[in-house]
Design a protein around this nucleic acid. Structure first.
Length: 542
RNA sequence: GGGGCGUUAGCUCAGUCGGUUAGAGCAAAGGACUCAUAAUCCUUCGGUCGUGGGUUCAAGCCCCACACGCCCUACCA
């Protein structure tokens, strides 16, 4: 045990450890679906966990608003790109944050002045220090689209164009054209990146993602074209205003500009480096390009880049074109934001792909939230009301049994286990650990039969002890589950009268949630409304 | 073509360094109980671990091949 003592002491000696966590910034042209919401929720659970644990936490999300696609859509709708972005941010992306109850500390838009200024400074620094050079960019150009085409929009021609590459939209041959671009010397960082992955095995997580990144970099890195001249909706290149910045180079910098890169050195020093939570599709940008950019600028690389998996619907990646895209409010309107958060965090192993189905959501909602946690809270609070006039009963020392001690030990054990799991980004395992306490308490109440004790005058002390144990268990659960299901735990906290007795729920030190006897005997309680009302199964799609 | 991941109970998934009778939840069946959201608790049922080889005293786990599925291969969480 001396080892764990040493670790605890070290932790105690580093108060207010910084924890800066980010979601990707979302491309405003997309319609928010549960995949976006999944990323947001996972990041939020981690942020809330660290914040409630006393870490100096900062969580960031936002939107990516530059690029040709947005310019094109805006023009088609007869508005400026900025107006278009404003509209989508206000109608779609900020509402998403509310829909799933995200506690972000900041929301950055790549059209914010702070961002555009920071990007310009970053670019200038790299240019001045020789990391950027002018070169010729050669790519396939579609006359119909009037733009260079990314690979995803290039297909093999058929019929008259057999053997040629054609535009996916116009089905006409593409021309090989050149334009002057500025390039970032990313290839120069290949060895340093490989050394980084080697020296810090937890830099890219999970291990499967790390393997992919290493394999990719080992194939050899090319320099990255970071400017465009064919359109103007972007951040101008500081030394050559005929170019705008490549959208990814711009977008990645949000993580730095949001916390004061180039403008507020104190804030930047306090927050950086970040932990980035990303979908596995954009892993490469975060695990290769982004650290290379930072190395060039002489800035520390991120703490971690964690790539989560896809939500699968019917065994396939969710997609709008296959009509499997689901809007978050389709779920929250019926089940609520807590259920949304709980379901995706619990049912899916974080870092792996996971299956979504309405049946599974419905089943887990009832079995785990309504019947498990919700009903436990309901029965305990009701018995406190019925047998003790709605006050917290006091445990009687001589009546404390092995069963009570087992609950206390379990509470301490699951608290420690959950914290370790969160540290490893194993959100699903953290929740599973906490749920052991939910199940144990339901079993405990069942075995101790407080309703039978209540019928015997001689058993009043034991009755008080049993309900005190059960209620303290609820107190611990409210604290432990608050990062995941903030609304339900707040309702429970209010019913327990805990806010007046020991303070706000979000202020309860999470790593001490397992400590017993925190809720004083005699604390007045309030009736508890049903936390997770049953939902009749209806027109659920298969 | 190159690469990553996966294939374990009806369903969704765990399975650590190779080590005894392969686990959980849900679903299904039976029983107990009545404080509670017809909730809870107990019991039972259920698996030739994708296929074929190999290494080993011992393989779900390591090696080889194959099959199937998903994904990446330079601007979609």
């Amino acid at each position: 045990m001396p080892e764990s003592l040493t670790r605890d002491e070290n932790a105690a000696n580093v108060p207010n450890k910084s924890f800066f966590i980010t979601t990707p910034i979302f491309y405003v042209n997309d319609a928010p679906h549960i995949g976006h919401a999944y990323t947001e929720v996972a990041t939020d659970v981690l942020a809330r966990w660290h914040r409630q644990s006393g870490d100096d936490t900062w969580s960031l999300t936002g939107t990516d608003e530059h690029g040709q696609k947005i310019l094109r859509t805006a023009t088609a709708n007869g508005v400026t790109p900025k107006e278009w972005a404003d509209r989508l941010v206000e109608s779609a992306w900020r509402p998403l944050i509310d829909t799933i109850n995200i506690s972000n500390d900041d929301f950055i838009r790549t059209t914010d002045a702070r961002h555009e200024e920071g990007v310009a400074k970053f670019l200038q620094k790299l240019y001045d220090e020789g990391h950027i050079y002018a070169g010729e960019f050669e790519a396939l150009y579609c006359v119909g689209c009037e733009e260079f085409k990314p690979k995803s929009e290039i297909v093999d021609g058929t019929g008259a164009f057999e053997g040629e590459k054609v535009c996916a939209i116009h089905s006409k041959p593409l021309e090989l054209l050149q334009e002057k671009n500025y390039f970032f010397k990313m290839s120069a960082f290949q060895d340093r990146l490989l050394a980084l992955y080697e020296e810090r095995p937890d830099f890219v997580q999970p291990a499967s993602a790390r393997n992919e990144v290493i394999a990719f970099v080992q194939q050899g890195l090319e320099d990255l074209s970071i400017s465009r001249t064919s359109f103007d909706w972007g951040i101008p290149i500081p030394w050559d205003s005929s170019h705008v910045t490549y959208v990814w180079f711009d977008a990645l910098l949000n993580y730095a500009t949001a916390i004061g890169y180039g403008s507020d050195d104190e804030q930047f020093a306090r927050r950086w480096p970040a932990t980035h939570i990303v979908g596995k599709d954009i892993l490469r940008f975060h695990a290769v390009i982004w650290p290379a950019m930072l190395m060039a600028a002489g800035v520390e690389v991120p703490e971690h880049v964690f790539a989560h998996g896809w939500l699968l619907v019917g065994g396939e990646k969710m997609s709008k074109s296959k009509l499997t895209g689901i809007a978050p409010n389709e779920i929250t309107d019926t089940f609520g934001s807590d259920a949304f958060r709980y379901y995706f965090m619990r049912a899916i192993s974080f870092g792996h792909d996971g299956s979504f189905s309405w049946e599974d959501l419905h089943a887990r909602y009832h079995a785990e939230l309504a019947n498990g946690f919700g009903n436990l809270a309901s029965r305990v609070v009701a018995m406190n009301a019925k047998y003790f006039g709605s006050v917290m009963p006091g445990a009687v020392e001589s009546e404390i049994s092995d069963e009570d001690r087992a609950i206390r030990e379990l509470a301490a054990a699951v608290t420690a286990a959950a914290d370790e799991h969160i540290e490893r980004f194993a959100v699903h395992e953290a929740i599973a650990a906490i749920w052991q306490l939910v199940d144990a308490l339901n079993g405990y109440v069942q075995e101790q039969q407080p309703w039978a004790l209540a019928k015997d005058e001689a058993q009043q002390d034991r009755l008080a002890t049993v309900l005190a144990t059960a209620t303290e268990g609820l107190r611990a659960l409210a604290e432990l589950l608050h990062p995941v299901i903030p609304l339900a735990t707040a309702k429970l906290w209010a019913a327990l009268g805990a806010e007046d007795a020991i303070g706000a729920l979000a202020a309860q030190p999470l790593r001490s949630a397992g400590q017993w006897g925190r809720l004083p005997a005699g604390t007045p309680q309030q009736p508890l409304a049903v936390l997770f009302p049953r939902v009749e199964s209806e027109n659920e799609s298969k």
